[in-house]
Nucleic acid binder design. Structure first.
Lengths: 211, 211
DNA sequence: TAGATTGTTAATCGATTAACAATC
DNA sequence: TAGATTGTTAATCGATTAACAATC
């Protein structure tokens, strides 16, 4: 793999999509694909595909194209999908529980190790064999377990406090579903899923389709 | 409001965020704010804020800044939040149910009118007083009810078929949570929430923090 | 009026696309 | 070898930032 300079955020955001299409191709037993063919499938220009991939090294071969399996493996590795991630979920309402189930069934490599909530009616419950613990136990849990990713599914009022605890507890990344922009240290990766923002931009696009 | 030419996607994606910060300011009884002060809060440059807002018209006043309440109202209107949206959810697993609850409690204006699933164990269930209907009843339901937004929470294998039915049933927008890129006609707005892609780009960022 | 801050034009920056030489 | 297709450089396009005249 080429020495990675600074790869732009836009490129990174496209990698999972490349990987999905390569996975489909693998399932269809397609061995090789050219940037042009991939362009037709995925909707990016062939030029962009080649540019994107060459950020990480020359995975193709002139006159041949790309080996589907090899490229899939390379992208997986670039994304860091060749290792496991220990995760905890803070906030075990419907969304927290949905994510626990989702990752449990569909996301090998992303392992929910613990769940936390402040609501006594949820504490003690078991979701996919993970017991929901009391929120007050979070600090100690993080001290005793090396967690990679903290998932925040609380309301917006509590989210920053939770983020602070997670950062203190040395998580490497935060997956935030609360409708606030969190402050976290430079050393922690932050990925936001602002469902509300997403729905609002859909509303905009519904009302401006004829433009 | 100025005649809107073609507003870039990036601008639209920032509008909900502006709105959130303005809402916070309203709660704090702040009447006015300059692009510079807003820049400090929200993290966009003052220049970008002024450019963004001027896509839609001159909401500010020289020497004064922007009226918080008025700007909030304007952005709400631009996004189309001054009207209601009738929604249905297809796929009532954990995520579908979570979204039903989420929109029910937090998203006035986005009203879940119906829910559909293929699983007999879910059909008949009631979620926030919405009965889960059998998937086979979807076509007829769409014929008899004018639905604005279809939310797809099925597995990826079924998503395109559901999308086709929704488009046939004349929805205006689709909020897609399945891990596929859907084909929908030009006339239908499509907003994807690819949770899996999001998690993968978080993984990348975790592994490349020191770059 | 003087000061502040917008609206808007111009400059810069970065990302996408086009082109083509290198090479399998 | 001839044909195909990459890797990579150059050109274009679009988005962000800077600057400042207009004006409240």
């Amino acid at each position: 793999m080429k020495e990675t300079g600074k790869i732009s955020k836009a490129v990174i955001k496209r990698l999972p999509r490349y990987r999905r299409y390569l996975e489909d191709l693998m399932k269809k037993d397609v061995d090789r694909i050219s940037s042009n063919e991939l362009s037709n499938l995925i909707g990016y220009t062939a030029s962009q595909i080649r540019q994107d991939l060459n950020n990480f090294g020359g995975f193709g071969q002139q006159g041949y194209g790309y080996n589907v399996k090899a490229l899939h493996a390379e992208i997986s590795k670039i994304l860091g999908l060749d290792r496991d991630y220990k995760m905890i979920i803070v906030g075990c309402g419907n969304l927290g529980q949905a994510l626990a189930n989702y990752t449990h069934y569909y996301k090998a490599g992303f392992i929910v190790c613990g769940m936390f909530d402040i609501n006594p009616r949820l504490v003690g419950l078991s979701i996919n064999d993970i017991e929901v613990m009391d929120y007050s136990a979070l600090d100690e849990y993080l001290e005793q377990n090396q967690i990679d990713i903290g998932i925040i599914c609380t309301n917006k009022g509590s989210a920053q406090e939770v983020a602070d605890k997670l950062v203190m507890g040395k998580v490497k990344g935060i997956w935030n579903f609360a409708a606030v922009d969190l402050e976290v240290g430079e050393e922690v990766a932050l990925e936001n899923v602002h469902l509300s923002d997403s729905l609002q931009s859909l509303a905009y696009n519904i009302n401006h389709k004829e433009d």
